[in-house]
Design a protein around this nucleic acid. Structure first.
Lengths: 212, 212
DNA sequence: CGCTTAACTGTTCAGTTGAACATATTTCTC
DNA sequence: GAGAAATATGTTCAACTGAACAGTTAAGCG
């Protein structure tokens, strides 16, 4: 019963709002919706809007023009900053070290909304056996609960590296997924900066691709 | 000289508009911009807006409320449909076979704006040596110019498969990037549905992950 | 010194917009 | 058949909004 709590008309109006926003960049006004559906009164639209809002399909800023917000836009898409390299710790994640942004919806990125999400561009082949390549953008979450086997970004000697977090005999170490790279056993503290939740790869054109 | 054609003030106003849109979901009105910057008149805002529009940093719908559009929103983010399986050909890419959407910015996805972009969920390990895993979402472009070495989605016997396109002795075939899978030499026609331009992977939690 | 451009003020105006009120009809369930 | 919910109408209103007009001030340039 949770699947569709909307009547056909309600769904139509929600879809119209979403389509308009996607295509024109702005949400329609109540009167525009009214004319599109041929209502003689805009009050009908008002009623639909409040119903959709009550059911959680729509959000809005009261008493403002074209201030409808589809949760699709507001909740799902996250704008993730890409850091080239994190210099010291989470404290220093400033605007200046941002290399760019990836924008993708939270669902396909696996992001929980409580924790902070950021991205790193992978350098080197140390995780190639985990199918993470040089140049890939790895999306991480600043989380507390790191589990055995998670791929994490960790701070070692002022450098950020991406490794697999392995707990063995009660002691954690960082495992490279490439026989050519050494595993890292932390001398004292292991500073985890984020847990990998997703990956975005930009496929290079053949001409510029490295031969393997 | 192409880098920054904006004065400090112009840049500030553009950034304010973009930030507001990102955080609140709606673009600010001229008066909201006015009060944020402490202008005594909204005409100042009007002038900035037309300057930004003239320089191509802003788009808008004339005479409509909150109808500013930042090209960031309109141009860069693309909403890509994910098809679970393409049954017959490009002609049958209907709404019904859509499994979901990924939304990400065109830049990180490598998408050119002329060709149609779509996505497929990868099934099986046949491309594992190309570091494409089971469950990955592969973003493809419906392009004409397939090059030797490109990873493509092709239609073989009514099934869509992801393989590497290899041209040898003037004849193309489809190569699996896994020794356990056979290469496919087309009997007659080779129907390329799209060329891989990008990849999105949702990292599974350790508990649900397959042991290898 | 003129000329241009950027930055800004003060005011008016018409069209747009969300909201509210009172009421009517249909559809469905109990 | 009563009641609830969904659907719809008609109208009025205050607030919001973009746009325009007519100016001012400062900086840079040749």
């Amino acid at each position: 019963m949770i699947k569709i709590m909307l009547t056909e008309r309600q769904r139509g109006i929600l879809e119209f709002i979403q389509t308009e926003q996607r295509e024109k960049g702005i949400t329609p006004s109540t009167r525009e919706i009214q004319h599109h559906f041929g209502f003689a009164s805009q009050t009908s639209v008002m009623q639909y809007i409040s119903t959709l809002e009550r059911k959680g399909f729509l959000d809005r800023h009261a008493r403002k023009a074209r201030a409808l917000i589809t949760p699709v836009q507001k909740v799902r898409i996250t704008d993730i900053p890409i850091y080239g390299q994190i210099p010291a710790g989470m404290a220093t994640l400033t605007e200046q070290t941002i290399e760019g942004h990836v924008s993708l919806d939270a669902r396909s990125v696996n992001a929980s909304k409580n924790s902070r999400t950021f991205a790193l561009r992978v350098r080197g082949d140390s995780m190639i056996d985990a199918h993470v390549l040089d140049g890939d953008i790895v999306i991480l979450e600043d989380r507390k609960d790191v589990q055995n086997g998670d791929i994490v970004a960790a701070l070692i000697d002022g450098e950020t590296t991406l490794k697999r977090y392995v707990m063995e005999h009660g002691r954690p170490y960082l495992k490279a997924e490439n026989p050519l790279y050494p595993n890292l056993v932390p001398a004292r503290e292991l500073r985890i900066q984020g847990v990998m939740v997703s990956l975005v790869r930009k496929q290079m054109p053949v001409s510029r691709r490295k031969r393997s």
